[in-house]
Amino acid sequence: MTQNEKKLLQQFRGLTENQRETLLDFAAFLAARGEVAAATEPVQPLPIERPAQESVVKAIKRLMATYPMLERNRLLHETSNQMTRHVIHGVPAVAVIDDLEALFRRHYEAHIAPPEER
């Protein structure tokens, strides 16, 4: 086991069960971000409705599925910041998800804008 793995395990053991689930969800999100989008990406966002109860990680997954045409690497920093606001700073999930929806919409608008407007 590497030093990083030992450190992560030690920190993981110090978390509550809810925090552990959030960390595992976030790790799954990070692992999935490297997946390549399909060659036939839709031009329009897919109509995936926001559920009444949703975690931040599930919202990120839903938004990634809604906007498959967006480059994940361009969204990573801002998406991670939103996750940090929720996990570390205690911002309610609903508020963070609202901000994530605006973030994805903003990136989509930039994606479809003519090159001279980008």
Results as ranks from 00 to 15, higher is better:
T2L: 14
K6V: 06
K6F: 10
L8G: 00
L8Q: 09
L8W: 10
R13H: 04
G14C: 04
Q19A: 13
Q19M: 09
Q19T: 04
E21M: 05
E21W: 02
L24S: 08
L24F: 08
D25F: 07
L30E: 14
A31S: 14
A31M: 14
A32L: 11
A37S: 15
A38P: 06
P42L: 14
V43R: 14
V43H: 08
V43N: 09
P45Y: 04
P47A: 01
P47R: 02
I48C: 07
E49P: 00
R50Q: 12
Q53E: 14
S55M: 08
V57T: 04
K58F: 05
R62P: 02
A65Q: 13
T66L: 01
P68F: 02
E71K: 15
N73Y: 12
N73V: 08
L76N: 07
L76S: 12
H77N: 12
H77C: 05
H77V: 10
T79N: 01
Q82I: 04
Q82N: 11
Q82R: 15
H86Q: 09
V87L: 12
I88A: 13
I88D: 14
H89D: 15
V91E: 04
V91I: 14
A93I: 05
A95Y: 05
D98F: 00
D99W: 01
E101K: 01
E101F: 02
L103W: 02
L103H: 03
R105L: 13
R106E: 13
H107R: 14
A110N: 13
H111C: 04
A113Q: 13
P114V: 09
P115R: 14
E116F: 15
R118H: 11
